[in-house]
Write a protein that binds this DNA or RNA. Sequence first.
RNA 1: GGCGGGGUAGCCAAGUGGUAAGGCAGAGGUCUGCAAAACCUCCAUUCGUCGGUUCGAUUCCGUCCCCCGCCUCCA
Length: 470
Amino acid sequence: MELKVFNTLSRSVEEFTPLDPAGRKVGMYCCGPTVHDYAHIGNFRTFVFTDLVRRYLEYRGYEVTHVMNITDVEDKIIRKVGESGETLKEFTGRYEKAFLEDLDVLACLPSHKRPRATEFIGPIIAMIRKLVAKGVAYQAADGSVYFSIEKYRGCGCCYGQLLKLNFDEMRVGDRVASDEYEKESVADFALWKARVPADGDVFWKSPWGEGRPGWHIECSAMSTQLLGSSFDLHLGGEDLIFPHHEDEIAQSEGALDYGDGERFVKYWLHGSHLLVEGKKMSKSLGNFFTLRDLLEKGFNGREIRYLMLSAHYREQFNFTIDGLHGARAALDRLDECLHKLGELAAGETAEAESELRTRFAAALDDDLNVSAAWGAVFEWVREKNKALAEGSVTPAAAAAAIAAWQRINAVLGIAAKEVSVPAEIQALAEERVAARKAKDFARSDEIRDQLAADGWVIEDTPKGPRVKRA
RNA sequence: GGCGGGGUAGCCAAGUGGUAAGGCAGAGGUCUGCAAAACCUCCAUUCGUCGGUUCGAUUCCGUCCCCCGCCUCCA
């Protein structure tokens, strides 16, 4: 089976074939966060999605170079820096650190490269220079440099690759007063923003005077610098399709020289947004959550990751607190099965059994159908549980099952953390065994309540008691 | 207004021109001193509406209703 993905460029599912003639190396760029606040779970759905893509490519044997940028200069950041009295670096550094911690909580693998916009001012300026030299960018009376869509189109280039655009029907001016800029056309976008007093100390020198980069240009400059002028995959949230990604294409294909059939990015993948309790997240509705909010409610990263991975990435997903409870229950069931298999395998090793892996890969090959992949996992759990209950699993078979699980969990990334039982808890459990033997049920129930109060659940199995974290 | 994505059991969510994965919740059972937990079994004659094509449609086409996203710096 071949891996197939939905490419926004063609609006269809296509077979994934890397640009690398050897078919091995894959370059993947993801639009990272703007570090001006703690990221919310909507942001993280996208990052969990990109993590799934990266992990599955690696599972399939590709050598992935994963780049995720940090946008550390932008309007909101500049405003907040001005209010906070901190330097740009202090301010963005704090949120960048928090973001990376959050990614780790969600078991998202760190990208191989993590460029910051402020560290690529040189390449950004170089790219703008090329655009100006080619005549598709111009400096306006306000000192800023803009990309001219009309001139770009005039060169035979296509603006509107990711979506159908109809400028006549667009509602211009809803968000940005069109007279705020001195652009030749409202459709044009800023490459370099001239310094204004409100920018404070945040500015760089450029051939067009002091200022700072526009938003879209950083991604074009960083991605092509780090992955080459053409690379395989570019991912992000669906809202970035327009204008951000469309503008990235325009800038890159406008500035760099591409041969016949060559283009900036081969596959564009976009993740849909999530709703929270059926509504778009908003602070006024009280359904706006950062990852940290959910952790404070007592949920953990794997539960949140599991929930985010329960729906297909191109479907809008309804994230609910109820769903998180469901995620916990589902993971408990999986953990239970793996625990039993692990006990039975007792350190034996074996080749991974193939059926689970086959079904799992078939599901993910189909445009990353992770829901179907989970279906395969849980059917496997039921089969294993049944066999375990019948006593028909050999230690070698258990080891083969565990090995298969470990292989697919390299993609899913939701392995349970080993929990060690403290000595005093273990001692209480043993005391309860003695009490039960002596038919002192009052005492044994008392111990059970005590353990429960300490956050431990005791299970009486045919092989004796088992203590678990509640 | 333009463009796009959806409506599948109480909830979440896959999927298919041939009769509906999976998870949660719920019900029954096994186990247990009683429980809990765990495990097993069951749980959509039906896929928003009304038509059409077809031997057969939830799946294709058309209509209507509803929800959601983007439309210039929001993942």
